[in-house]
């Protein structure tokens, strides 16, 4: 073993607080359920014939699961927005908007090093984000807007079948978009964007975990990441 070998100290840092983790996994689960049931509703399989309608209610059940999950998704989204004003630095809404010069530098760095796979001459510690990097922030911002689109179009379509005030808040959406048919199209097309987002998101989590070895994947379960001591000493968060 060479004597000049460099060692680094890692510190265990609580990055994702419990509400953030809970919200994350509820979102993940509800997106999966909503996507699967949504695609079934869009194009139901036909595996029965000769049966009477009174014998079965499976399609109604699939729709019911979709609607219940939609409510969970909505409430969860509201809780997460609340936590964006209440939570720690990494959960804060400010961490989602790249409005500083430094954050744009970080975007550029991530694009160069992680997306285009350029190698840096020497490792600059402060370029490695403790929470999510700003490219990820932008993708979450887009996801958040997509969630809004799905909530508005989904509850807009649902409103006509409900007398409750909450869906009624969205009753204007189909009229605004020119009818149920265009509303449904937007709702349906946005589903594919969720699928695409999920693929990219999961891949990049694995990529960072593999390369950086900071416990990126388990961080969303335990809340902790491993961060170099020197990195923490510099007062720049990112």
């Amino acid at each position: 073993m060479e004597k000049t070998i460099q060692t680094s100290d890692f510190k265990r840092v609580l990055v994702w607080e419990l509400p953030v983790r809970i919200c994350h996994w509820i979102t993940a689960l509800s997106v999966i359920i909503l996507t699967v049931t949504g695609l079934i509703i869009a194009n139901p399989p036909v595996f029965m014939s000769g049966a009477e309608a009174s014998e079965s209610y499976w399609f109604g059940t699939v729709r019911m699961i979709h609607f219940i999950t939609a409510y969970i998704f909505l409430v969860n989204a509201i809780v997460r927005i609340y936590w964006a004003f209440r939570g720690n630095y990494y959960a804060n809404w400010r961490a989602l908007f790249p409005y500083t010069k430094r954050s744009w530098k970080n975007v550029w760095h991530v694009l160069k090093v992680d997306i285009l796979l350029q190698n840096e001459e020497e490792e600059i510690l402060k370029n490695i984000s403790i929470g999510h990097n700003y490219v990820a922030s932008i993708s979450y911002l887009v996801l958040f807007l997509l969630a809004l689109v799905q909530i508005f179009t989904g509850f807009g379509l649902y409103a006509a079948t409900s007398g409750w005030w909450l869906p009624q808040l969205f009753a204007w959406v189909p009229d605004f978009l020119g009818g149920d048919a265009p509303t449904r199209l937007i709702h349906h097309a946005a589903t594919w964007l969720f699928i695409v987002f999920t693929l990219i998101h999961v891949y990049l989590v694995f990529y960072h975990d593999w390369l950086e070895g900071r416990g990126e994947t388990s961080a969303m379960i335990s809340g902790y990441k491993f961060v170099r001591k020197e990195r923490l000493e510099s007062d720049e968060h990112i």
């Binding site: 997306i115 796979l117 350029q118 190698n119 349906h188 589903t191 594919w192 699928i195 695409v196 693929l199």
Partner: peptide, 30 residues
């Protein structure tokens, strides 16, 4: 919508796979 979605998903999966291969080469040393 479905056709476009399927093609986009396929393209993204192919892109991610290519990225994974490229990453394992480019970031090998690191």
């Amino acid at each position: 919508a479905d056709k476009v979605g399927k093609i986009a998903t396929g393209a993204v999966v192919a892109g991610l796979a290519a990225h994974a291969v490229a990453a394992s080469i480019s970031k090998r040393k690191e």
